[in-house]
Nucleic acid binder design. Sequence first.
DNA 1: GGTGAAATTTTAGGTGC
DNA 2: GCACCTAAAATTTCACC
Lengths: 153, 153
Amino acid sequence: MQIDAIDRKILALLQEDGRISIADLSARVGLSPSPCLRRVRALEASGLIARYVAVLNQRAAGLPVSVFVSIKLERQREEALDAFSAAIRRWPEVLECYLMTGQRDYLLRVVVADLESYERFLKTKLTRLEGIASIESSFALEQVKYSNVLPLG
Amino acid sequence: MQIDAIDRKILALLQEDGRISIADLSARVGLSPSPCLRRVRALEASGLIARYVAVLNQRAAGLPVSVFVSIKLERQREEALDAFSAAIRRWPEVLECYLMTGQRDYLLRVVVADLESYERFLKTKLTRLEGIASIESSFALEQVKYSNVLPLG
DNA sequence: GGTGAAATTTTAGGTGC
DNA sequence: GCACCTAAAATTTCACC
């Protein structure tokens, strides 16, 4: 999809406030509401805008702990890798998961209420998966920055 | 703030779709629109709902690369730590930053278009900061999961 | 917490530049 | 492709029970 400067401005504003009205949005990007709405719909249809969500305050929700987990998998069949991915996607404690360069390395961000909850997650879920060679956990004390705004142009 | 089962349901739905109408939301949680809207406003005022945003597709936006950067700081004055945090918050390439347990360790997620852009970020920004003892970069090949939905009750 | 009505916003259509 | 206008539909919001 072709993106121009006005689209970038629209995307920037929607990333800051996903509920801004088309009237306000169009005024801020220098268009009238009709073409502005058309652009937003086109950006949604193209998949560039993936979804609109409410972002909660992790601490206020009683889930102040983020744990970063490095997982190394044993050499194995494709099927086991798919099972790993599927489990990750299913577990609500895992908010982010990345396949890292190098070998069979995954990085997870796990969100829990406290260390006890994390231990429970480890014992009842993660360590029960087959094919894991090693697990290493690092704990975040403080969220210095948490943004969804991509650095467009 | 006191949260009950209906509030948790509201939060779950809003985290999935930040633009769901009050009419739909109220029907799905088993309330009429008025009290449902009152609850949503209370959740916003309490800070539990931090904000509403549009989530973009990183790949479609031409920024497919996430780099995780571990930074160790030298022992130093509080002032320098604040300068570090301030810079991190200002740089749009850094989407997430966590202060980790242990010592002066930070973990960053940096989003860029390609490795060249990452080198530019390193050379013109990160390595110019004072008080950094070491920098270690790991590259994500694939985003297996990226969610904003907290595991509430 | 529910009801109903008013106010605001969204959204689609049509014309001309 | 955009501005402008109009109008219908949907949604938000509020006073009141």
